[in-house]
Design a protein around this nucleic acid. Structure first.
Ligand SMILES: [Zn+2]
Ligand SMILES: [Zn+2]
Ligand SMILES: [Zn+2]
Ligand SMILES: [Zn+2]
Lengths: 144, 144
DNA sequence: CAACGGCATGTTACTGTATAACATCATACA
DNA sequence: TGTATGATGTTATACAGTAACATGCCGTTG
């Protein structure tokens, strides 16, 4: 998807949810957009400092938290990082695959793949919050 | 399982894998044993300092990493913590359920629940490393 | 207009998490 | 006895995240 198209869609997505994609938030989103795969908060912080002179951690974390809240980014706990979600407009169970060798990240739509997991959980009375599963392994091109 | 029995089993487990459960490693394991649910590295560090006077982060992290390596502990990335594994002797796909309300943690054996996930992954050529899935949600007693 | 309320952002300072790099010690084995 | 290997100690630092409070922005309302 083209960058401007993506940003427009993101803006409309936020507004349809009663939130504003402010200049700062958009700027952070654009910075994330410039990194393939997983990006770290402090990387964004450095980028932001490069663009604006000053910026402190809370500035970045607030923007990132907002973007996660809106579904534009996914948090990848296992890596202390964030990745772009390319289909934020349809609610989905994400399955994030992280390659141990090349560091590449890929998001699958796991909606429908989780029934047996869900069954096992309800058997013990556990109600999962909608979220993303993260798995590490080896991607196709790194199988070698 | 009784504590001494557990420790003996753990020691044999390590030795059968060609590793040694040294005094320090066992001491750390015992400290983890004393905490229900998830325990943090710096909590163990504090415990260790109480018992031995001095201890630095690398000491604790090395021991914890070792125990994870041996399968005696699971790392819970999402919480920056560790939990005991009660069936380290049989290889398993763990499913760790973390309750957002009470902080309780429960490990399910998810072996066999992951076929559709595995299918989805092989469809894109991804080979997962054996590991644990972590999900947050609400446990039975906190449903209210 | 002026005052207010809300939300977004700025700023400072701190807590918590984790590792690099190098020194030392123990043990086993040639 | 020397030497290699793995475990531990020690210092210092990097990386991640948040609390608390100040300031600015903007739409509403009297
Ligand atoms: Zn997604
Ligand atoms: Zn790869
Ligand atoms: Zn387990
Ligand atoms: Zn609970």
């Amino acid at each position: 998807m083209d960058k401007t198209v993506y940003l427009d869609a993101a803006r409309r997505h936020c507004e349809s949810r009663g939130c504003r994609l402010t200049e700062l938030r958009q700027q952070v989103l654009e910075l994330v957009l410039e990194h393939p795969g997983v990006v770290k908060a402090y990387q964004i912080l450095a980028d932001l400092q490069r663009e604006r002179g000053v910026a402190a951690p809370p500035t970045v974390y607030r923007a990132l938290d907002f973007l996660v809240e809106q579904g534009l980014l996914h948090r990848v706990e296992a890596l202390n990082g964030f990745i772009l979600c390319h289909h934020f407009d349809c609610p989905h169970d994400g399955l994030i695959l992280v390659c141990e060798r090349c560091g590449g990240v890929e998001e699958l739509d796991a909606t429908g793949c989780l029934t047996s997991l869900t069954d096992a959980m309800s058997a013990v009375g556990f109600t999962p919050r909608a979220q993303n599963l993260v798995l590490t392994g080896t991607c196709r091109s790194c199988q070698a």
